[in-house]
C-alpha cells in the first residue's frame, strides 16, 4: 500500500506531456484520474519511474458537438459524462454507462480516457465506445492518428497505444434517425466492475424493424468486443421478443467466457445472454 519511488511531472500542455513521455518510453506512465494506476502502484505491481499527470491539463476535459460528431476529451471524468445534459439528449448511452461505474468518489476522479487506455477487461467504457463505433485520437511525438474502437482493444490490459502515445480524444458520430440505447451490467459486489456489461445501440427503420445494431460487451473475455453474432442476428428483424432472445444467444460466439471466484465461465455466459436480452429490450423500449 506504499508505492515505490517515482518522479512526477504535471505538464501544462499535451505537447509537453508527449515529450515527457518520450523521454522515458519504458518507465513513464500517464496519470489521469489515477483510479487504476495508483492502486496498482500502491501494491507495487506497477512501478513507473515517472508519472506524467495530464489530469491538470484543463483543455483535455470537454464534451462538445462539432459537426455530426460528439467530441470527448480524454480527461473528462465519469461524473462529467454522467451529468451532461447534452449527452443525455443526444447520446444517452454514455451517461447511462457512466453512472454504473464504481462509486461517487471514483466517478468524480476517474476519467474516460484513463479507463480506455488501461483496458481493464471488466471496465465499462470499452463496451460503450464499441457500441457507439467511436474513434480514438492518439497523439504521439511525431503525429496524431485515429483508431477505431474496435481496433483499439488488443488484449488483456493491452491497447493499440504505442509507446509514447497518449489518448487525447474520443469521437463519436452523433446518433441520428430513430434509435435506442442501453447499458446493462452485472456488477461485481466488491469491485463494482462489470462481471458482464452490455452496451447496445439500436438503429431502427421507420417501420420499427432493426436497421443496425451495434453492441459492445465487456467483462466476458480478456478484452471488450463487438458482439457481431448478435448484431447480425438482430439486423432486419422486427425485434420482437423471440428475435431478441434468439439473437442474444450469440453473445459469446467465439469467446470462452472468463472464470473467476465470483462467476464461473458457464454462469458468466448465462449472465451475458440474459443481460444482452435485457439490454436490447431496454434499448428498443427507449426507441419507441
Amino acid at each position: 500500500m506504499i508505492p515505490a519511488q517515482f518522479d512526477y511531472q504535471a505538464p501544462a500542455t499535451l505537447e509537453e506531456a508527449v515529450s515527457l513521455l518520450a523521454s522515458d518510453l519504458d518507465g513513464a506512465k500517464i496519470l489521469a484520474g489515477g483510479h487504476s494506476l495508483i492502486p496498482a502502484m500502491k501494491l507495487r505491481l506497477a512501478q513507473p519511474q515517472l508519472l506524467v499527470d495530464i489530469g491538470r491539463i484543463k483543455s483535455l476535459a470537454y464534451i462538445r458537438e462539432e459537426g455530426d460528431e460528439i467530441l470527448i476529451g480524454a480527461t473528462t471524468t465519469h461524473y462529467q459524462l454522467e451529468s451532461s445534459d447534452l449527452l443525455q439528449r443526444i447520446c444517452p448511452l454514455l451517461p447511462d454507462c457512466a453512472k454504473s461505474i464504481g462509486d461517487v468518489q471514483v466517478r468524480n476522479k476517474g476519467t474516460i480516457g484513463g479507463s480506455l487506455a488501461h483496458a481493464d477487461p471488466a471496465a465499462d467504457w470499452p463496451a460503450a465506445v464499441l457500441a457507439l463505433g467511436a474513434e480514438l485520437v492518439l497523439v504521439g511525438p511525431k503525429a496524431e492518428r485515429t483508431v477505431k474502437a474496435e481496433d483499439f482493444f488488443v488484449d488483456l490490459f493491452t491497447t493499440d497505444l504505442q509507446p509514447g502515445e497518449i489518448l487525447r480524444e474520443i469521437r463519436i458520430k452523433k446518433p441520428s434517425g430513430r434509435f435506442g440505447q442501453s447499458y446493462q451490467k452485472a456488477p461485481h459486489p466488491a469491485s463494482g466492475f462489470a462481471v458482464v456489461g452490455i452496451a447496445v445501440h439500436l438503429g431502427l427503420n421507420d417501420d420499427g424493424s432493426c436497421k443496425a445494431a451495434a453492441i459492445g460487451v465487456t467483462g466476458v473475455d480478456v478484452k471488450a468486443y463487438r458482439a457481431k453474432g448478435v448484431e447480425a442476428a438482430l439486423s432486419g428483424t422486427t425485434i420482437d421478443d423471440d428475435a431478441i432472445a434468439q439473437a442474444s444467444l450469440h453473445v459469446c460466439d467465439g469467446v470462452d467466457p472468463n472464470s473467476d471466484l465470483y462467476a464461473s465461465s458457464e454462469y458468466r455466459g448465462q449472465l451475458a445472454r440474459v443481460h444482452m436480452r435485457r439490454a436490447i429490450q431496454a434499448a428498443k423500449a427507449k426507441a419507441q
Binding site: 501494491l43 507495487r44 505491481l45 477487461p121 471488466a122 488484449d155 488483456l156 493491452t158 461485481h188 469491485s191 466492475f193 480478456v222 472468463n258 472464470s259 473467476d260 471466484l261 465470483y262
Partner: peptide
C-alpha cells in the same frame, strides 16, 4: 504472494494471453 491475493480475477486471463 501479492499476485495471488490481489489478482484473482486477472490470473486466468493473463495466463490465456
Amino acid at each position: 504472494g501479492t499476485i495471488a491475493s490481489v489478482g484473482q480475477r486477472m490470473i486466468q486471463g493473463t495466463a490465456k494471453m
